[in-house]
Write a protein that binds this DNA or RNA. Structure first.
Lengths: 210, 210
DNA sequence: GAAAACTCTTGACAGTCGTCAAGATTCGCG
DNA sequence: CGCGAATCTTGACGACTGTCAAGAGTTTTC
C-alpha cells in the first residue's frame, strides 16, 4: 500500500506523506480524546475537531482501535523525555529533587487532559486485551524514565537506590495520580502538596551512605 | 415515592423492599461492570446477567448514572473494612506488615474485577463531573483505611508515622495498581512482588525511634 | 493534456444505546 | 375473592455508533 511511491525518494513526498497525515490526525484525535476520554470520543467527534471528515479515518487507519493505539504511542514519543532536562541539569541531589517536583507540577498544569487520557486507557486495558501490549510498553518506558531520575539522584548523592525501579515508579505514579485527581477536583493545594511530597520522598529512595 | 408504605412498619416489608431490590440489582450490575467495565456495560447486558428485564432499571433508578453511582457506593460499603482484621489481630510490626501484604495479594486474586472497575470509574470521574463526588468519598474512605493500618503499625513499633496518610495512600495505591495490571497481564511473580514490596516499604513509613 | 493513482467527502448500512410508555403480571389487604 | 397498588415485561422511539462503498476532487505521471 505505502510502497507504491516514486522509485527513489524524489523531493520529499515518497509515501511518508501518509505518516504525516496520520500524525496530524493523531494530534486532532488526542485533543478530543483528552477532552472526552476514550469511551465517549466518537470518530465523528474526533473528525469534527479536525480539518477532515469522519470517513477519512478509515483511509489512514483500519480501525478505531488502531487509531487509538497509534495516538497513545505518538503521545508517548513526545512525552517520555520530558524529564531528561531534569536529569541533565541537576547539580545536586536537592536540586534534582526540586526540579523533579517542579516538573511534575508543571506537567499536571499543562497536560492534565493527556494524563487523564493515559489513566483512562490504562484502565481500559484491564478490560480490553487489545490495548494491553501498547499500555505495557508505555508503562515500561515511563518506569525507565523514573529509573533514570532515581539513578541520577543516587549518583549525585554518592550512593545507590534503595528500591527497585518498579516500586519507585509505582509510588510516584500513585501520588501523581492523586494530585491529578485533586487538581481536576479543584482542590486547592493539590499541586503544592505534590511538590512537597516528592521532595520529601526522594531521600527515602536512597540507601544510607556507608 | 418511598414513603407510600403502610403507616408504621408492619412485618418486614414497609418499603425497604425497594432497597433490597436496589441492592440485588446493584449486585448483578457489579458483576457485569466488573467484567466489561463502565463504558461497555449496557443496561440490557446488565439486566441479562440478572433475573430482571432491561426496563426494570428505570423503575428503581432514575438514570443509568444513578445506578452506577449506587453500585460504587454499595461496593465501597462492603469493602472498606476488609483490612480491619489485619489491624485488630496483628501482634507486632512485622506481623502486621506481612498480614497486610498477604491481604493485598488476596484482594487481587479474589476481587480483581471489582478493582479494575474501581480504577475505571476513578478515571472516568476525571472526565465526568457527576462521578466526582462519589469517587472522592470512596477515595477518602480508602485513604482512611490505609491510615488506620499505618497508625496501628506505628503504635506496634512504638513510634509515629513519618508520612501524611495521603502520601502513604498514594504510594500503596500506585504499587497496588501496578500489581493488578501485572496480574491481569499474566505476569508471573506480580503478586509475590507486591507482597515483598509492601513488607519492604512499611518500615520506611515510620520515624526512626528516638 | 489525458490517464492513472491517490486522497477525501458524502451518504447510507446495520447495530446498539438510554429512555420511556403501555400494558401484563403479581402482590397485599379488605 | 376482588380490587387497587406495586412491580415487572415488552416493544418501540430517536439518537448515536463504527464501518464501508460509491464517487468527487486532487495530484502525479507519462
Amino acid at each position: 500500500m505505502t510502497q507504491v511511491a516514486a522509485h527513489k525518494a524524489s523531493r520529499r513526498t515518497p509515501a511518508d506523506k501518509h505518516d504525516a497525515r496520520r500524525k496530524a490526525l493523531a494530534e486532532s484525535a488526542l485533543r478530543t480524546l483528552g477532552e472526552l476520554g476514550y469511551a465517549r470520543s466518537s470518530l465523528r467527534e474526533i473528525a469534527n475537531n479536525s480539518e477532515f471528515s469522519h470517513g477519512v479515518v478509515h483511509y489512514y487507519f483500519s480501525d478505531k482501535l488502531e487509531l487509538i493505539v497509534y495516538c497513545v504511542r505518538y503521545y508517548k514519543e513526545t512525552c517520555v523525555h520530558r524529564y531528561d532536562g531534569v536529569v541533565a541539569e541537576a547539580t545536586s541531589p536537592e536540586d534534582l529533587a526540586e526540579r523533579f517536583g517542579d516538573k511534575l507540577v508543571e506537567t499536571i498544569v499543562e497536560e492534565a487532559p493527556m494524563h487523564r487520557l493515559w489513566y483512562d486507557l490504562r484502565s481500559q486495558s484491564m478490560f480490553e486485551e487489545s490495548l494491553r501490549e501498547a499500555v505495557t510498553q508505555i508503562d515500561q518506558s515511563l518506569e525507565d524514565m523514573i529509573g533514570r531520575i532515581v539513578d541520577r539522584y543516587a549518583t549525585l548523592a554518592d550512593t545507590e537506590p534503595a528500591l527497585p525501579t518498579h516500586v519507585a515508579y509505582g509510588m510516584f505514579d500513585g501520588i501523581f495520580q492523586q494530585a491529578l485527581l485533586g487538581h481536576l477536583n479543584g482542590r486547592d493545594g493539590a499541586l503544592e502538596d505534590l511538590r512537597a511530597q516528592v521532595v520529601g520522598l526522594m531521600p527515602m529512595l536512597l540507601t544510607p551512605k556507608a
